Amino acid sequence: MTRTLAIVLALIIAALGWQSWRLNNARHTIESQGTALEVKAQELSKKNSQLIGLYILTETNSREQMRLYAAAEQTTILLRNRQHRIEDLKRENEDLRRWADTPLPADIIRLRARPALAGGAAYRQWLSQSDAVQPEPVSAAH
């Protein structure tokens, strides 16, 4: 019976050792998963902050776009009113009508005929290709 008791005791000790080993592995797994969860939470917080920043930027852009559309509409209305006022004045005043019907000077026509430019590089290229004003000759006498 002692032998049976020793075998049962050995089995119980082996079972407890095995359970202790499993619990230790489970604890290590839980700790590593907890660490991974904290890292993921920090990444999620960072992404959430970025999304909030993008939302604020989008809202700001939308408001500014609406403001620009309203300003463009207001400008169009003012331009239309100005054109109507000019037409009314031309009908009222003969001198103004003659002045408005005279052709523009060649330099003004050339300025109005320039192409639409997109940026500084295009402007510099246009300037270098156009007929630039020649510099005055430098006199030799000082």
Rank of each mutant, 00 (worst) to 15 (best):
R82G: 13
L11D: 06
I30A: 13
A71C: 03
A113C: 06
T4N: 14
L78H: 10
A41Q: 06
L57G: 12
I7G: 01
W99H: 07
T4S: 14
L127Q: 01
V133G: 00
I77H: 05
L57M: 12
A132F: 00
A15S: 05
N93Y: 00
S139H: 05
Q125E: 14
G17C: 06
R112P: 03
S45R: 05
R114L: 10
D88M: 09
Q74V: 04
L89K: 07
H142F: 00
I56C: 08
T102F: 01
A6L: 13
L89S: 10
W126P: 01
A36V: 02
P105H: 02
L127N: 00
A15H: 01
Q65W: 03
W18G: 15
R98W: 04
A71T: 05
A70R: 07
R114K: 14
K47G: 00
A122Y: 01
A71N: 07
R98S: 10
E31H: 07
T29G: 07
T29H: 07
G120R: 12
A41R: 06
S49V: 08
T102D: 08
T58A: 15
I77F: 04
S45P: 02
L44E: 11
L16S: 05
R3D: 15
Q74Y: 02
H84S: 13
Q50W: 08
M66I: 08
Y55T: 15
A26L: 14
A71Y: 03
Y123G: 01
W126D: 08
T29N: 09
R22K: 15
Q134P: 04
I7L: 11
N48D: 10
V39F: 03
Q42K: 09
H142I: 02
T35E: 09
A122D: 13
W126E: 11
N61T: 12
T58V: 15
A106C: 07
E136Q: 04
L79W: 06
Q129A: 06
R80N: 11
A6V: 12
R124C: 04
A10K: 02
T60P: 03
Q129I: 02
Y123D: 07
Q65E: 09
A71S: 08
A121T: 13
Q129K: 06
S45N: 08
Q134N: 08
Q125P: 07
G17H: 03
S62C: 10
A121G: 09
S62K: 14
R67L: 13
Q129L: 07
R91S: 12
Q19T: 14
P137G: 01
S128H: 04
D107N: 13
R124K: 10
A121N: 12
